[in-house]
């Protein structure tokens, strides 16, 4: 446990609070000192830990892959190149199997999603107290009250991060739909399915019903995409925190859950990637 004078509830809440910087109605632009202050900031706040870790991990991913790309030879590949090529081919095959259109964007997009989400999920395996305690020490060094230094290491347990990505994918889906079928095609997709009839009058009656149904289908895509990743990782993180409460006996439990979680984080990264490809291929293909 991080603090000696914390109740388990406080400990869990402390762990689930992001390091927030934002515009507080009373204090102006400042760090949030508590969960209440953070929520009072409303929309005009940013989670520094989420942003820091996600950007840092993204840069690590890009640097490693960029290095491998620069060193790539047509001869016998070395260790790093082997690994990178394995990932690239795996993603490329997944894309080719599902997405039948031609796009220079989809494959790199999928690779970025898979590796980035995987790396962000991977932070879940770092013992839950290591980095937050380090952050508290650093925060204390700079004069902050360690009790008020919040630090959430796993970006994908922040719903902002997952929704940020899924909404970007959603924007791409709409863009691709409009590009492939035109704006009228996009509207037609929304209003002429699933109920379709040659009778014009009856069709006019069906349009609003179709629109409601299709709008729900469309909007459910980004929401479910983002919340699925968030929910899985949030639950995993919560269980890690709960295990951390029980003291010495956490070690075997922690190990077991970490092994299981290793599967979950890979699977979730893969699912996020696959669903992105599927949504985009659905956007391009005609019904």
């Amino acid at each position: 446990m991080a603090g000696t004078n914390q109740t388990p509830t406080e400990y869990i809440q402390h762990h689930l609070q992001n390091l927030t910087f934002g515009r507080h109605p009373e204090h102006g632009w400042s760090m949030a000192h508590s969960a209440e202050e953070a929520s009072e900031m409303g929309f005009w706040a940013i989670h520094l830990d989420t942003m820091g870790w996600s950007i840092g991990l993204g840069i690590i991913f890009l640097l490693v892959f960029r290095k491998a790309g620069k060193l790539a030879t047509t001869g016998v590949p070395s260790g790093l190149q082997n690994f990178v090529e394995l990932m690239v081919e795996f993603v490329d095959n997944s894309v080719k199997e599902t997405f039948h259109g031609k796009s220079r964007l989809i494959a790199p997009l999928s690779l970025t999603i898979f590796c980035w989400v995987f790396l962000m999920n991977l932070m879940d395996l770092v013992p839950v107290d290591f980095l937050p305690m380090l952050a508290q020490k650093v925060g204390g060094f700079f004069g902050a009250d360690p009790q008020h230094v919040y630090f959430k290491v796993v970006p994908t347990t922040d719903v902002n991060a997952t929704l940020g990505m899924s909404l970007s994918v959603f924007a791409l889906v709409i863009f691709y739909t409009i590009r492939a079928k035109g704006f009228t095609g996009f509207i037609g997709d929304l209003t002429l399915h699933p109920f379709n009839t040659p009778n014009k009058l009856l069709q006019a009656l069906f349009v609003p019903i179709n629109f409601v149904l299709e709008a729900v289908t469309l909007l459910a895509k980004p929401v479910s995409l983002g919340l699925r990743l968030f929910g899985n990782l949030y639950a995993g993180e919560l269980i890690f925190i709960l295990i951390a409460i029980i003291g010495l006996w956490q070690l075997p439990l922690h190990f077991t859950w970490a092994v299981f979680h290793l599967l979950v984080i890979t699977l979730q990264a893969f699912i996020f990637m696959m669903l992105t490809i599927v949504y985009l291929s659905m956007a391009v293909e005609q019904h």
Partner: peptide, 26 residues
Amino acid sequence: MNLNLTLIGQAIAFAFFVWFCMKFVW
């Protein structure tokens, strides 16, 4: 679990990473 600017920041970072990957990695 507040929705805030992080969402937009994350979307921008995501877009940048995808762009970089498409241009220089892939």
